[in-house]
Nucleic acid binder design. Structure first.
Length: 644
RNA sequence: GCCACCUUAGCUCAGUGGUAGAGCAGCUGAUUUGUAAUCAGCCGGUCGGCGGUUCAAAUCCGUCAGGUGGCUCCA
């Protein structure tokens, strides 16, 4: 038979050759590191026979598909360990995830796992790994499979099997553990060299909150101890950057039950950052033809009934309040308010596009268990805008929106990836005419192409009222966050009967683009805090320069210097306490202030200043003019320190 | 909302049934300082709330609240 490799090389192998045979023929190194093989895009174990001509791809831990096989196998090893320690444990599902794996287990009796139980399981896994048990694939009939799990009393597996009736069933066996599993698996447990079990959590059986709560054990594993060490270092780095921790330390924001969970309070320093951020984005939008509006925090319930958001989202809204026999809702979204602004007067096609933007604060009743720092809150502010345009203008408007979004994230050094979410063939899921959708999707795709965007297309991911573009950014430590969206909407113009008069003197429906570059300002602030690890760039730093005299004799000179810097339009902190200079510097560094200006007798005599740059150290003696020039250069959105 | 864990001074944390502790912060005083924390004294707690077990509870049990990690949800 002919086996074709990904680079196009074709090789002859005897019928029944295995992935391992193929790997061996390429190199012993590959054979050592190979985890699985894709045969005509189907996952195979390396030991499984290949019986006909095929295109193959051998995967190692460097491939996402390889990691998937590796972690899936690790999940089974963990299950074996748990089963060995707690005989009678029932098993749910145990897949790989983006970073590691988990297994849902139901321990015998009322036993529940806690984190204290994890080291023992880890230890057992290491023992089992040393046995180098082979993962054996067993083809079995459905009837026999059912019989097996009924015998061991694992009703979860029986239920899974019920759904697989009529399909080919495979079991995998490694050591003493037999599991229902599609595979594929790595050759043997010995390849799992480093394991760390991370946490336990409750998880509903099959994700259904009406069903049993199982114990989910999360873990991660690697072929080398060094890789696990790096992973742990990375987690510590993420912990060090945690915006909840930095938010407290740097006094940026607070959350107190007295005001309400999920209702963040901005402290002076956090407010400064937020204000500068908002001003920057406001200016850029106005430059691009947006007009700013402000709408109230409550609105008449009738309006949300027309928009269709109520009662569809009633569960996640604060309940209506009654005033003067009318019902009002805390604003769950800005769109209907903006539509009212559009409806205030008739529009000519000559006025379009109309671009209304607002820092609109909305309230949503998120479930208590969901609240998390600034990431998931009950009251937040969207950098929201609605563009009312004609169908002919749609493409250009989309381009404009994408352009501004790219501009924003470039300022923060956040690489952007794009996903186009289109409809699938199930027309019951969507509103609006299909011709309009086709045209909008074509416009979106063309706009993306013309802008040279790299994107993926996801069919069936569109919203009810139109196709959308989602943006995912990567932060300084490589984590991905989904932020802004752009959505094309044909449904709301119908519901609110929005109109404009065309050049043909008859009325038409405008198209609406909903767009929010960062989505929630609160969430974006949390991402910024973690992205910069609290070391905000000069232009965003709540305190930009600290000025400190070495001794009391320089208090006057220091005060004078601070006043001059402040007069230059910078945010200054003056520290004239009778503390040693080391202490003042330590505190300035801890507060992550970009520059410390230190003045002693020498500086006073020469009229100079001594400068220390945050995270860099002493950068020498400079004139104040030189420093003001540098500050001016750095006080611009996106400005970077490039010369030292 | 559900599961597990956590909650001790403003902050970070020790304290496993027998008189509530430390460092930092704060206050007072001394010190006037050369690139990451000067010294001393003082102040500060209903050990998250409520109930129970016990001669005795920060400590054991129950319950409620808040937080953390997940699950479900996310216009």
């Amino acid at each position: 038979m002919i086996i074709t490799l990904p680079d196009g090389t074709a090789k002859e192998f005897p019928r029944g050759a295995t992935g391992m045979d193929i790997a061996m023929s390429i190199s012993p190194g590959l054979a050592r590191n190979a985890l699985g093989i894709f045969v005509n895009d189907e996952k195979y174990d390396l030991s499984r026979k290949i019986n006909e001509d095929a295109n193959v791809r051998i995967v190692t831990f460097n491939d996402d598909d390889g990691k998937e096989i590796y972690w899936h196998s690790s999940a089974d090893l963990m299950a074996e360990a748990i089963g060995a320690i707690y005989p009678g444990t029932k098993f749910g599902i145990g897949p790989s995830i983006e970073q590691g794996f988990y297994y849902d287990v139901d321990l015998p009796g009322d036993k529940r796992l806690t984190v204290e139980d994890l080291p023992a399981i880890e230890k057992k896994m290491k023992e089992l790994s040393k046995l180098k048990s082979e993962y054996k694939r067993i083809e079995i009939s459905w009837e026999e499979a059912i019989k097996h799990f009924k015998e061991v009393g694992d009703e979860y597996k029986v239920e899974l099997l019920e759904d697989l009736k009529g399909q080919e069933i495979t079991f995998y066996k490694q050591g003493g553990f037999l599991d229902l599993c599609r595979g594929a698996h790595i050759p043997n447990t010995g390849m799992i060299k480093a394991v760390k079990l991370l946490s336990v959590a409750g998880a509903y059986w099959r994700g259904d909150s009406d069903r049993d709560m199982m114990t989910r054990v999360y873990g991660i594993s690697f072929p080398k101890q060094k890789m696990l060490d790096e992973f742990i270092t990375m987690r510590q780095e993420a912990e060090r950057r945690d915006h909840r921790k930095l938010g407290k330390e740097l006094e940026l924001f607070m959350i107190t039950p007295m005001i309400g969970g999920g209702l963040p309070v901005w402290l002076p320093k956090g407010t400064t950052i937020r204000r500068i951020l908002e001003e920057f984005m406001r200016k850029e939008q106005i430059k691009r033809g947006y007009v700013e509006v402000i709408t109230p925090h409550v609105g008449n319930l009738e309006m949300y009934k027309i928009s269709g958001h109520y009662p569809y989202y009633a569960d996640s809204q604060y309940p209506p309040m009654e005033m003067d026999s009318e019902q009002y809702l805390l604003k769950p979204m800005n769109c209907p308010h903006h539509h009212q602004i559009y409806m205030m007067k008739p529009h000519s096609y000559r006025e379009l596009p109309i671009r209304l933007f607002e820092y609109g604060t909305v309230y949503r009743y998120e479930q208590s268990g969901e609240l998390n720092g600034l990431t998931r809150v009950r009251g937040f502010t969207q950098d929201d805008a609605h563009i009312y345009c004609t169908r002919d203008q749609l493409k250009d408007e989309i381009k404009g929106v994408v352009d501004i979004i790219r501009y924003f994230f470039d300022i923060f050094d956040m690489p952007l990836t794009t996903r186009l979410s289109f409809r699938d063939d199930d027309s019951s899921k969507y509103g609006g005419e299909i011709e309009l959708w086709d045209r909008a999707q074509k416009d979106i795709r063309e706009a993306a192409d013309e802008l040279g965007l790299e994107y993926t297309v996801e069919m069936g991911e569109a919203s009810f009222y139109g196709p959308k573009i989602d943006f995912v950014i990567k932060d300084a430590i490589g984590r991905k966050w989904q932020l802004g969206t752009v959505q094309v909407d044909y449904v709301m113009p119908e519901r609110f009967e929005l109109e404009y008069v065309g050049s043909d003197n008859s009325t038409h429906r405008p198209v609406i683009i909903h767009r929010a570059p960062v989505g929630s300002i609160e969430r974006f602030m949390s991402i910024l805090i973690e992205h910069y690890a609290g070391n905000f760039p000069f232009w965003l730093a709540p305190e930009q320069v600290s000025v400190m005299p070495i001794g009391g004799n320089q208090n006057e000179y220091a005060t004078e210097i601070a006043a001059k810097i402040e007069a230059g339009g910078f945010r200054v902190k003056l520290d004239t306490r009778s503390e040693k200079i080391g202490r003042k510097i330590a505190e300035s560094e801890q507060q992550k202030i970009p520059f410390a200006i230190i003045v002693g007798q020498k500086e006073q005599d020469s009229g100079m200043v001594s400068v220390r740059e945050h995270t860099v150290g002493d950068i020498g003696t400079k004139s104040l003019e030189e420093m003001l020039a540098l500050f001016n250069k750095l006080n611009v959105p996106g400005a970077k320190r490039t010369d030292n």
